[in-house]
């Protein structure tokens, strides 16, 4: 765009960018320090140094051998998969229907979904947990069912954006050629909309991986990774907890950065454009 943007004219821009980068990176740097610096040199000293005085893998080894965190991570994984799957099972039909009923009416439904989404998590979670206890759902299945509430509106919105970008006659042509609706869905509509569906699945997955409120209220024992991490942090076994937190944060960061690339070109706004 601006060809004359030389190094010098951009100096304030660079200064701003560097300062903001440092501010945003510092907490992550602290997590790395706590994980890899031997504890006696670190948090156990009254004023831990800002630069690493030593290096160790002891904290990570200790975390994996002493703490029972693999169970929660596996459970988190299952819950995230269930939430992602439910998003598609409920979201694809809903988005398909919304795409067919005309933009004005569809937007009314979308506004309704997003208003519902504003309902405070903790307000909804407590009665749900009381009812789920009666139904025998005070476990990770109940957590998955409740977390779905958080991600469903956005999933529908994203998938709808994908459907709206497809040519309108596509479905009609398939129907004229004799394909019934389920066949059209499986063979044509879903494959052609796969990138939006993938984004919806990944966002649902990541949201569930991170979700804490519903998880801690509905299933405080034998729960997901964030709840277990919270339990360890409050019981002050922080080096191990941080080592664990770091190793399971890295994959999520990678997913987030990859997703961010998708999102820029993807149909986040497609659902509203008519």
């Amino acid at each position: 765009m601006n060809v004359s943007s030389s190094w010098k004219s951009n100096l304030p821009l660079y200064i701003g960018a560097v300062i903001l980068s440092i501010i945003f990176f510092y907490p992550l740097y602290v997590l790395i320090l706590i994980t890899f610096v031997p504890a006696p040199l670190n948090n156990l000293s009254p004023y831990p140094p800002q630069f690493p005085p030593g290096f160790t893998f002891y904290n990570i080894i200790q975390a994996y051998s002493a703490l029972n965190l693999t169970g929660p991570v596996v459970r988190s994984f299952y819950v995230a998969m269930m939430v992602g799957g439910l998003s598609l099972a409920l979201g694809i039909p809903a988005a398909y229907g919304l795409n067919r009923i005309g933009v004005r009416m569809a937007n009314k439904f979308i506004i309704f979904f997003f208003l519902i989404n504003m309902m405070p998590g903790i307000v909804v979670a407590i009665p749900i947990s009381v009812e789920f206890l009666k139904l025998g759902l005070s476990n990770i299945y109940g957590v998955a069912l409740a977390q779905e509430l958080v991600v469903l509106p956005l999933s529908i919105f994203i998938i709808l954006g994908g459907f709206r970008a497809l040519p309108k006659d596509l479905e009609n042509q398939a129907r004229v050629d004799g394909a019934n609706l389920p066949t059209t869905m499986y063979r044509i509509l879903i494959p052609m909309n796969r990138s939006a569906i993938l984004v919806a699945f990944l966002i649902s997955w990541m949201t569930s991986w991170d979700e804490f409120t519903y998880a801690v209220i509905i299933s405080p024992v034998r729960s997901t990774f964030p709840v277990q991490l919270y339990n360890y942090v409050t019981r002050a076994v922080s080096f191990e907890a941080s080592a664990f937190a770091l190793t399971f944060t890295i994959p999520v960061i990678i997913v987030a950065v990859v997703l961010q690339k998708y999102l820029k070109s993807q149909s986040f706004t497609g659902g509203l454009s008519s």
Binding site: L28, L229, V233, S238, V252, A256
Partner: peptide
């Protein structure tokens, strides 16, 4: 990046 980090992890940090 911070947006991708779990809330509990960032609270802990």
């Amino acid at each position: 990046i911070p947006y991708g980090i779990s809330t509990v992890v960032s609270a802990f940090i």
